[in-house]
């Protein structure tokens, strides 16, 4: 995955770059919008990380210029500290995801992984599956190893989201945004409770758990390694 980070703060940019490299993500940096457009024309990055607040050309302006040119590279917009303007504005402007500063590196990596795998409008299949897990999107039914899972609507949506991003780490705020359609930062472990309920129904009676916790980052739908 090739990432272009557009950020005017050199120090912040260099540590993000280093962090991404440690996760095996190849990233380049542009200090302003003008330079970023030059790099995009040259290297065609897979994902763009765009700071909203920049001198000269700000993130919003650069994004709309990019979209005008017909470039639909996935864009993750970074908001400034204490910005009340929510992600709706960023998403309306053509961003694919939105992350508020300060963010953890794990959160950024998880979102970049999902964004780079995004293949728009091709998920129209009726069925999603992973290992012995099967989900029917039309009948809204889920089964594991031939056994029906009795899922609440929210639990079903969560499972579908995990299946669509199987093998990728999904953070708590990603679940909140994509499953519950909410984008604030809860001070409680509210998502964990939902996960533990889903896990009860999904993994309890099976030898190999599918839903794994990734410490500090979130969750991943993956067969336990070594099994």
């Amino acid at each position: 995955m090739q990432v272009l980070l557009v950020e005017d703060d050199e120090v912040a940019a260099s540590s993000v770059l280093e962090g991404l490299k440690m996760h095996g993500i190849d990233a380049v940096h542009a200090a302003n919008g003008r330079k970023a457009l030059e790099i995009i024309a040259e290297v065609k990055p897979d994902v763009l990380v765009l700071d909203r607040m920049m001198p000269e050309m700000d993130g919003m302006e650069m994004l709309s210029k990019l979209r005008e040119q017909g470039d639909n590279v996935p864009v993750l917009m970074l908001s400034a500290l204490g910005d009340v303007e929510d992600r709706v504005v960023g998403l309306k402007a053509g961003a694919d995801d939105y992350l508020a500063k300060p963010f953890s590196l794990d959160e950024l990596v998880a979102r970049l992984e999902v964004l780079s795998k995004r293949t728009p409008n091709t998920v129209s299949e009726r069925e999603l599956c992973y290992a012995d897990l099967r989900v029917d999107l039309i009948d809204r039914r889920a089964e594991r190893n031939g056994q029906d899972l009795e899922l609440q609507p929210r639990e079903f949506s969560m499972l579908v989201y995990f299946l669509k991003n199987q093998g990728t780490i999904v953070s708590r705020s990603m679940l909140l945004e994509n499953v519950f359609d909410l984008s604030f930062d809860p001070q409680t472990n509210v998502i964990d409770v939902h996960i533990s309920r889903l896990r009860q129904k999904l993994d309890k009676q099976h030898a190999s758990p599918l839903l794994q916790t990734v410490r500090g980052s979130g969750y991943i739908l993956q067969e336990q390694s070594g099994n």
């Binding site: 500290l81 204490g82 910005d83 009340v84 303007e85 709706v88």
Partner: peptide, 19 residues
């Protein structure tokens, strides 16, 4: 804490528009 404080200030100052 900083974030909450800044959001609060922005919300309280009627000058900033919001979506």
């Amino acid at each position: 804490n900083f974030n909450a404080l800044l959001s609060l200030s922005r919300l309280e100052s009627k000058a900033t528009k919001f979506y």
